[in-house]
């Protein structure tokens, strides 16, 4: 049963990291400076009249933190994200997360919402299982992936 203990060790150490993070970074709701409703919006929506709806988008408290990105990579496997999105998020039955394209928006808070609350067509809500810190860790990992330059073209002919 050595490997079950290893999972526990991984999760415990993640837990320590997450607890540590907790004391530095408050949860998203506490970040809004005023009483604006939380803004859950897709990057792609057209704003009627050009007027964006008001709301506070939480910032990623772990943005660009390399250690958190690495922890997020382990969490990506531990939470079985790779079971639907493929190893390294390259795509499987769920869409690719490594192509620089985002169905529901690619800013950190938009990716946060996708994981925390779930999305249509079968993306589960992981917020209840992971809490905000676990989800930000995954966001940080996903934003650390670098899609290849020319994702758009697939060619079978040589020039």
């Amino acid at each position: 049963m050595k490997h079950i203990h290893n999972i526990r060790a991984v999760l415990l150490s993640l837990g320590v990291l997450l607890l540590g993070a907790c004391s530095r970074a408050p949860a998203p709701a506490a970040q809004s400076q005023d009483s604006s409703p939380p803004a859950i919006r897709y990057e792609a929506h057209i704003a009627a009249g050009g007027q964006q709806p008001q709301g506070a988008l939480p910032a990623n408290p772990m943005a660009a933190d390399a250690a958190k990105a690495q922890a997020g990579g382990q969490l990506f496997t531990a939470m079985n994200c790779d079971g639907c999105h493929g190893g390294g998020g390259s795509g499987w039955v769920g869409p690719s997360l490594a192509d620089g394209r985002w169905r529901y928006g690619g800013s950190d808070p938009e990716i946060f919402d996708s994981i925390y609350y779930g999305r249509p067509k079968g993306m589960p809500a992981f917020g209840g299982r992971l809490g905000t810190d676990g989800v930000w860790t995954l966001v940080t990992y996903l934003k650390s992936l670098s899609p290849k330059e020319d994702v758009a073209t697939e060619s079978w002919v040589t020039h």
């Binding site: 690719s96 192509d99 394209r101 985002w102 169905r103 697939e154």
Partner: peptide, 19 residues
């Protein structure tokens, strides 16, 4: 083959996979 050869997919610009 939808999983393994995801580059056969064309309908979603947000899901672009290598062969």
């Amino acid at each position: 083959w939808f999983l393994l050869s995801g580059d056969v997919r064309s309908d979603d610009p947000a899901d672009v996979r290598p062969p």
